[in-house]
């Protein structure tokens, strides 16, 4: 296992209401680690606390209790210096849900340059990073375009390039595919996979199960509690349990689970459609029932 990049130890978080009192905890006693180069999906229904979790990992929020360690820097509820915050944000980038709300400039390449400019890099270095980041997301041809003329998926790719230009070790995608059409979603997923192959740690927060199964590891959050942590196959083994969390399993896995309940002994994991077909055929042709 690679080095730990982000570690949460018994993290609790509750929002403050207008009077300054803490409301019911949005996150309760959460512990897990994100390792270098890992690809994790975090799933949970709306309001389960998964976005709060993302905001903690990027220091938009600080834990109310417990400890958060990011790249060796320990973070508790004590006030942080600006330098520490900047150091963490260089390491962990974040792509948000609404692409319109994260593009700053009126030209694509200027927007990608925004992060490196804040880091105080030289103009030559920024140019280099803008070029390579746009290449990485396949948006080089649009360098001179105005963001509002791009499609949702393209805007989101520009936002990813903007984060990449800061050379982080991990990117958190906070429901970054939720507002996109199927093509845009496919493009973003493909980009995530490519970044993962290049060694970037990816944390993808989503409620599309078909996207979550692309990850190496899935965390399930329900009402502020981390209820499951394992490979996609482990997590989706029991559709009934997943449904209890207000989620669903991919149709293929659902089908196989239903058949198993009826006593049909299909083996193997069936998260992807092709695996599902293969396992059902193996069962039917295997002669176990004839």
């Amino acid at each position: 296992m690679n080095k730990e990049l982000i570690t949460l130890r018994h993290v609790m978080f509750s929002y403050e209401n207008d009077e300054g009192a803490h409301t019911e905890a949005a996150l309760k006693d959460i512990s897990f680690s994100v390792h270098e180069g890992e690809y994790i999906a975090i799933i949970g229904h709306n309001g389960s606390g998964k976005s709060t979790l993302a905001k903690l990992m990027n220091l938009i929020l600080q834990p109310t209790e417990g400890e958060l360690v990011i790249d060796g820097i320990s973070i508790t509820n004590a006030p942080l210096s600006d330098d520490t915050i900047l150091q963490v944000r260089r390491k962990v980038g974040m792509v948000f849900q609404n692409p319109d709300n994260q593009l700053v400039a009126t030209i694509v390449e200027e927007d990608v340059a925004f992060g490196p400019e804040n880091l105080g890099l030289t103009s030559e270095e920024i140019a280099l990073r803008v070029k390579s980041s746009l290449e990485m997301v396949g948006m080089t041809d649009y360098a001179g375009h105005a963001p509002h003329k791009l499609s949702g998926g393209q805007k989101q790719r520009v936002a990813i390039a903007g984060v990449l230009a800061m050379r982080p070790a991990c990117i958190i995608f906070d429901e970054s595919t939720a507002m996109l059409d199927p093509q845009g979603r496919k493009d973003i997923l493909a980009t995530m996979k490519r970044l993962h192959q290049e060694g970037m740690a990816i944390v993808h927060i989503t409620h599309h199960m078909s996207e979550a199964i692309e990850a190496e590891r899935i965390l399930v959050v329900d009402d502020g509690v981390l209820v499951d942590d394992g490979t996609p196959e482990d997590v989706f083994r029991s559709p009934a349990r997943i449904c209890n969390f207000g989620l669903e399993v991919p149709q293929g896995a659902d089908l196989v689970a239903r058949l198993r309940q009826k006593g049909v002994k299909i083996e193997g994991d069936c998260l992807r459609a092709d695996d599902c077909v293969r396992e059902i055929l193996a069962f039917l042709k295997g002669g176990t029932f004839r």
Binding site: Q183, Q251, G252, L255, A273, V277, L281, L284
Partner: peptide, 19 residues
Amino acid sequence: GLDKPQITYIAEQLIKAGI
């Protein structure tokens, strides 16, 4: 540029395989 429901895809593959 559209996909079918996953379940329909699975059913079609099974039919193709002779089920």
